[in-house]
């Protein structure tokens, strides 16, 4: 370097000087591939779902009857409401269980946990978010479903099953919406918890100091000064959790029982949109059947896209607010 002429950059080496243009062009081009992928995913599924959308309209999602095989009595009908219902129900169960727990964990990790414990615990939480969903499925099938049946499903259905239709028996295989929701809750916990922790850490210390200075207890400080400040971000974390639960395929396919019949009971087998697509797309019996399944997948993609948009906007809003807040 020492021997280099000071003018060597600017003179002669035109490749060096003009390298910025190809650099910019290549990075922008490949970056726009990312945008193109999203557009392509939407466009391909939109085009492939045209047949079913034209034939049934919104009924593909709200119709009660899913009957791909044509019989003498009836033409094939595609109404995925059982799957849509199963998806929403299992995701709601998951989020109702996971959200309070995950927020508690987030608060513990960000505010209360001794630093020595915080690092390994945070690492464990992040590690768990990376475990493939099929492993949760294996564990669910062999370990959790039998366990859940004996400690929860059977006693509860015997006790209040007659009064509350949601908890009615009988419990056949034990696979159903509720147990799927519980396993999904376990799966999305790490995601929500680590995002909540990140958002809470962004809260400026002045918030905490001011609250403690007027004599608040630790909890009052957390609940009245820290959490409200990070509210939007926590909401964003929950939305991402819902998105993950809605789109979860393997755990649902393995645990929900894959039944197209709508049953009031949460212990009875049901199906979800993702598991319906996973189970039927490769053996679809007609182009219309295939198209209807793709419509279901498209709806799933649309919903998760909106949830992501909302969540990112919220988290972004919090980060911006905090930068401005100093």
């Amino acid at each position: 370097m020492a021997n280099q002429q000071p003018t060597s950059w600017s003179s002669g080496k035109s490749l060096l000087r003009h390298g910025d243009v190809p650099f910019r062009v290549s990075t922008v081009t490949l970056a726009s591939f990312v945008v193109a992928l999203v557009v392509l995913i939407g466009a391909i599924m939109f085009a492939a779902s045209a047949e079913a959308r034209q034939a049934f309209g919104l009924d593909v999602l709200t119709g009660q009857e899913w009957n791909p095989v044509e019989t003498d009595l009836s033409p094939p009908t595609f109404g995925a409401w059982p799957a849509v219902r199963g998806t929403l129900l299992s995701a709601l169960i998951a989020i109702f269980i996971a959200a309070p727990l995950a927020i508690g964990i987030g608060i513990f990790l960000a505010e209360l946990c001794p630093p020595r414990l915080a690092v390994p615990l945070s690492f464990l939480v992040e590690l768990l978010a990376a475990i493939p969903s099929v492993i949760y499925g294996v564990w669910g099938v062999f370990v959790f479903v039998p366990f859940f049946n004996t400690v929860f499903s059977e006693p509860v259905s015997q006790a209040i099953g007659g009064v509350v239709p949601q908890f009615a028996g009988p419990i056949a295989t034990g696979r159903g919406v509720l147990v799927t929701g519980v396993v999904m809750a376990i799966m999305i916990l790490p995601t929500i918890a680590s995002l909540t922790r990140d958002v809470l850490r962004l809260v400026p210390n002045t918030q905490r100091e001011a609250m403690l200075a007027v004599g608040a207890t630790r909890w009052e400080m957390i609940w009245l000064a820290v959490v409200p400040y990070a509210q939007a971000g926590i909401l964003g974390a929950i939305m991402l959790g819902i998105g993950r639960a809605l789109g979860e395929t393997m755990a649902a396919t393995m645990l929900i029982g894959n039944s197209q019949r709508i049953n009031e009971s949460w212990f009875a087998p049901a199906t979800t949109a993702a598991s319906l697509v996973a189970n039927e797309l490769t053996n679809s019996v007609s182009p219309l059947h295939e198209s209807a399944l793709i419509t279901v997948a498209l709806a799933l993609f649309g919903i998760t896209l909106l949830l992501n948009l909302g969540a990112r906007l919220l988290i972004w809003y919090v980060e911006r607010g905090m930068r401005g807040g100093h």
């Binding site: 995913i41 998105g243 979860e248 996973a278 997948a297 799933l300 998760t304 992501n308 948009l309």
Partner: peptide, 13 residues
């Protein structure tokens, strides 16, 4: 969006 999309969607496409 890609990282939040359900993995089944990638399969369908």
């Amino acid at each position: 969006v890609l990282s939040g999309a359900p993995s089944i969607v990638a399969g369908v496409v």
